[in-house]
Every structure is written in structure tokens, then in C-alpha cells.
């Protein structure tokens, strides 16, 4: 009798523990998706306006004290450069936190696309960093603390836009390198980043992210036919601080057309939330099993013995 109540007690307590552990993170998940700081800043990149002058690249180089370029910043031959057997255009690296690429969409005018960190609301680089080097600031920038970076480069793998680069050229102090929205020198003082300031075509509009969405929608409405009815980055991957307007479908100008609207962390949150459960519950669970099994084994022997006895008794009779 006492064995059964002990078993019931164990089972009930385990079920209770499991239920609370499983239920708690589910609830947190539902309300825990971060959609950005309400007053954060952003940039709307209007691909119909960019003329490919590369002034933004020059401004970035000067502002961030990057090494001298191999070619002058007004050299347009860079648009013909391709890598990996012609499959890849220029991308950001340790010497250039932003690059402009030229695309030739089917039967249309060339479209120039500026690439830099898009400063996600829920950045994959930040979620992937196990030393917590990354921070999403209330102003909207995704910055990182180079003092704690251990150079594991997980963020480079995690970034859906392939932005963080690594200073492979530095033998003794290699670091992650990426656009930081000019946070230190400009953004936190309420100033636009250097690339926005220099752009002659105002292809880059700096403002509060919520205003940029209004502006973007107004442009789409006012200039019927000029834009695709889509602001890339409004919802993509949980929303980004840098967003794009394009005259042609985004896949024609080098964007992943359908990265989904869930931030990258949503794909791993469920799995990661089971880790504490495993650590906390499994020892108790298995100890319980062990105890039960031992008890069960004891009962079994007893039963077997009694059966044997019973049989013997039967035989005697």
C-alpha cells in the first residue's frame, strides 16, 4: 500500500515539474518577441534614387578610419568585380563596412544596391554570441564590444545578410568588423551616419523607424508604378532598422526574397528553452526511475517467489 502511494507521489511531482517547466517558456515566448525600441532610428534606402557614385563608401572609410582602398572611391570598375566564379558580388569586409553593387534586372535600368548591416530588431549575431559581445542600442544600432569578443565567428555564420567580417589580416588582434550605424561618433549624438550625410541623391533617408515606414508607404502610394509595393525590412526577420524600397522584385537585386518574418532566434528558442528543463528535470526523473525500477525489481522477486511457493503448494496438494 505504502509502495503505491510513493509511486503516485513521484509520478505526480514529476508531471507537475515537467508541466511548469514546459509551460513557463512557452508563455514567455509568446510575449517575448522583441520588435524594436519604439523611438529607435533607421534608414530607408531607396534603390530608385541611388546612382552608384560610391560616396557612401568613401564617407564610411573616412568616418571609421578604415585602411586606404585599393581603387579610388569614384572608380566604377568595381561594379564589374565578381567572386566565387561569378556568383557573388562585392560584400562587406574588414576594410569596407558598406559596399554598393550594381544589378541589371531583366530589361530595365541598372539598379545600385548599398549593402551594410541592416541592424535587426532581434539580431541573429547577438543571439548567437556566447560572450554577449553584441548590443542592440535604444537608438537602433547593433554594436559590439571588441574587448569581450573571442573571435569565434559564430555571428558571421548566424547573420542572414552575411555582414559581419573578420580581420583575418591581423595576426595578433583579429576582430569582428561590421557597420555600427556610426553609433559612437554620430548616432548616439542624434546625428545621421556618415553615409547618409554624404549621399547626394538622398537615396538614404534617416529618421525614426516608425516615420520611415510612413514615408516609405507614402512614396509607394504617391509614385504608382515606381516602386514594388513592399518595404523590405519592415517585417523581414522580425524587422530591421535599415529598410529598402525597390523598383524591381527584390530577388533581382540580390536580396533573399523570402527570409520569413520570424527573427532567427525564433528558430532556436524552442529548442534552447528545453535545455534548462533537461538540466533540472532529468536528474530527478532518472533517479525516480531508478528508485521505481529497484522497487519494481523487489516486487517482482517477491511475486515470483510467492508464485513459486503457490505452485509448490499446488503440487503438494
Amino acid at each position: 500500500m505504502s509502495g503505491i502511494s510513493r509511486r503516485r507521489f513521484l509520478a505526480a511531482s514529476l508531471a507537475g515539474c515537467a508541466a511548469t517547466t514546459l509551460a513557463a517558456p512557452k508563455k514567455a515566448l509568446a510575449s517575448g518577441i522583441f520588435t524594436g525600441y519604439p523611438e529607435s532610428m533607421g534608414v530607408l534606402v531607396d534603390l530608385t534614387r541611388c546612382i552608384g557614385c560610391r560616396s557612401c563608401e568613401a564617407a564610411c572609410n573616412a568616418e571609421q578610419n578604415l585602411p586606404d582602398p585599393l581603387l579610388p572611391f569614384d572608380d566604377k570598375s568595381v561594379f564589374d568585380q565578381t567572386f566565387h566564379g561569378g556568383t557573388q558580388k562585392r560584400r562587406t569586409d574588414e576594410n569596407a563596412y558598406t559596399v554598393v553593387n550594381r544589378y541589371n534586372p531583366e530589361g530595365g535600368e541598372p539598379v545600385y544596391v548599398k549593402k551594410q548591416c541592416n541592424h535587426c530588431a532581434e539580431p541573429a549575431c547577438l543571439s548567437s554570441c556566447f560572450v554577449n559581445a553584441y548590443t542592440k542600442t535604444p537608438e537602433g544600432a547593433v554594436i559590439f564590444n571588441k574587448k569581450v569578443c573571442v573571435g569565434c565567428r559564430t555571428c558571421m555564420v548566424a547573420c542572414p545578410f552575411s555582414i559581419p567580417a573578420y580581420s583575418y589580416s591581423s595576426a595578433f588582434d583579429p576582430l569582428i568588423k561590421k557597420c555600427i550605424f556610426c553609433h559612437e561618433t554620430r548616432l548616439k549624438n542624434g546625428k545621421p551616419p556618415a553615409c547618409v550625410d554624404i549621399c547626394p541623391q538622398e537615396a538614404l533617408t534617416f529618421g525614426k523607424r516608425k516615420d520611415l515606414l510612413k514615408i516609405g508607404n507614402q512614396r509607394i502610394q504617391t509614385h504608382q508604378g515606381r516602386y514594388l509595393d513592399h518595404i523590405y525590412g519592415e517585417n523581414e526577420l522580425g524587422g530591421t532598422s535599415w529598410m529598402y524600397l525597390s523598383p524591381v522584385p527584390f530577388e533581382q537585386v540580390g536580396f533573399d526574397p523570402n527570409p520569413g518574418n520570424e527573427p532567427i532566434i525564433s528558430h532556436v528558442k524552442d529548442f534552447l528553452s528545453t535545455v534548462p528543463m533537461v538540466l533540472a528535470i532529468w536528474p530527478a526523473l532518472f533517479v525516480g526511475f531508478q528508485l521505481l525500477a529497484k522497487k519494481q525489481a523487489g516486487h517482482g522477486d517477491h511475486d515470483h517467489d510467492s508464485e513459486k511457493q503457490h505452485d509448490e503448494e499446488g503440487a503438494e496438494q
Binding site: C53, S55, A58, A59, N61, A62, D68, P69, L70, L71, P72, F73, D74, D75, P200
Partner: peptide, 27 residues
Amino acid sequence: CVDCHARTTKGDAFYHKNAIGSSGAGG
């Protein structure tokens, strides 16, 4: 750019006119 306005010396430095890979056609 330079069809309408000439670049200043400051501009030349800003755009790295004399970068090592420059074809000499800077400006």
C-alpha cells in the same frame, strides 16, 4: 559628378584619387 562641379583638393583626398590601384584617371 565633375560634369557639373569640379572636385576640390579635399574631395580628391576624400575619394582617394591616388589610391594604389588608380588608373590615373581620378576625378
